[in-house]
Every structure is written in C-alpha cells, then in structure tokens.
Simulated scan of single mutants.
Amino acid sequence: MTAQGTEAPGRIDDSRAPVALHGAALAADASGALLWPAEGVLAVADLHLEKGSAFAARGRMLPPYDTRATLERLAALVDREKPARVLCLGDSFHDRRAGARMESADAERLRALTAAVTDWVWITGNHDPDPPEGLGGRSVAEFRLGPLVFRHEAQPGAVGELSGHLHPAAALALGGRRVRDRCFVTDGAKLVLPAFGSFTGGLNVLNPAIAGLLAPRFDALLTVRGRIHRFPRDRLSPDRGG
C-alpha cells in the first residue's frame, strides 16, 4: 500500500509527480521544487548559497560556482513556471555572512529574480536566521496558506506540513544497479523537500532523523535523470555500511 494521496509504486512521469497533502493538490518536480498550481506557489528548500565560499574561508577549496549554478537553475524554473509566489524553506544562505561574500553579478541576478515574482518569501532556517538584506523578498519564520504550513524544520505530529532541512535522499536497486539520489519524502500528512542547492548532500530517508518523523508507511519520490520515480518505503535500502 502506498502513502495516502500517492499513486502506484514505480510510476514515472516525464518531469513531475502529483502529491496530495492535507487536501492540497501538489506536484513534485524533478528539479527538486514543489509546485502548488492552484495557488501559484513554487517552493524550494536549502539553497545554501555561498557554501563554496564558506568552505574556502576555512581552507577547503571547492569550485566557487555553487551560487551561480543554483541561481541559474532557480531562474530557469521561475521563468518556466511563472509562479505568483516563491517560498524558500530556509537555509537559503549558508551562513550570516553569505550576502557579503556573494559576487556582485550573482547578487544582481538574485535581486532581479526576487523582483520578478510578486511575493518572494525567505523562510528562516538554522543557517540563516537573519537572511541578508538588500536582495529582495521578505523574511518570515513560517508561512501558512490554506491547509498547509511551510517551515524549515519538520515538527513531530504536524499535519499539512512542508519542510526542508534534512536533505532527504533515497537508495534502492533499480534496473540491476544501485541508485541513490535526492528525493521528496511524504507520508500523506507531511512532505520533506530535497535540498535544491548545488553543493548539498543528502541524508538517507531510512535514517531515524527522517523516518522517525513520518508514519511507518511513506513514499520517496526519487529524482533521476529528469524524471520522478515513486517508491514505497519497503523498496528502499539503507546506505552501504549504514
């Protein structure tokens, strides 16, 4: 049996899969964004802008293009979907100094992006309790719309909740090979979005930090090669060595 509001396991859509959550008809997009077409909402989680420069400041040299790559993907998504509202579910910036480290061209691109959307909302996270000023948008601790609440960290027992923070990923055997990638995870009462940022890893959904928040039966909507693969919990595998 699949989680409430989901379809048959293994269903593959070209780019997105429908998800019902607390009476709302949503769509999980292979980009890692969550769409609510009836309300004109596009939601993304955990952009972690300027993570590369934060690591560089600590002596760990990563390619300094994560912010640009993330903004390019996000801009393409906004241009394609033309949402009335964009909700960024926390940890949009890797730390409090991310705005100061951002290259001017990237900052200008972000300002243009936030200005192009009627309502751009930065939901605060543990990495960015005070999102940088001067980049557009507005900041809130959580956002409620109709039957749903959008926040950074999932709360035990919450219903109709969409969150980020945990960077969910799923692993399983598929077509004779092992596949592991970031994913959406839902039990029909709550949904956790994958991290959208370019330099973000993933935590296996079978880890108690994620599985412990959900009902015993849940589905992972795995993003692989531009498509969504939907699998119930009993098809998933722990990480090797886990």
Rank of each mutant, 00 (worst) to 15 (best):
R96S: 13
A211S: 15
L62G: 00
D106A: 14
G160H: 07
L71D: 10
S198K: 14
P64M: 05
K82Y: 00
P63K: 07
L87A: 09
L135C: 06
L74A: 04
L236G: 04
F55W: 05
S198R: 13
V78R: 05
R182V: 06
A171G: 15
F150K: 01
L26A: 01
R109F: 13
P232D: 14
T186D: 10
A100E: 15
A33S: 13
A98C: 05
G32D: 09
S53L: 14
A3G: 06
A28D: 03
W120V: 10
E153A: 12
D128C: 10
L62C: 04
Q4A: 14
A98V: 01
S92G: 10
G137I: 08
D119E: 15
R60S: 12
R68N: 00
P131D: 14
H48Q: 13
G59H: 02
L145C: 10
M61C: 00
G146L: 06
R225M: 06
V224K: 12
F184V: 08
R80V: 03
L145D: 14
R217E: 15
H127M: 13
R217F: 00
G90L: 05
G134V: 11
S92Y: 01
R225D: 15
D130N: 11
A171F: 00
L222A: 06
L193K: 01
S53F: 03
A76R: 14
R97W: 06
L87K: 04
G197D: 05
E133I: 07
L191W: 04
T200D: 07
A69C: 00
G157M: 08
L203P: 09
G125F: 11
A75R: 15
L21V: 08
P232V: 14
P132E: 11
A115D: 14
H152W: 06
R225C: 01
G164W: 07
R235L: 09
G212S: 11
H229T: 03
L135Q: 07
M1N: 10
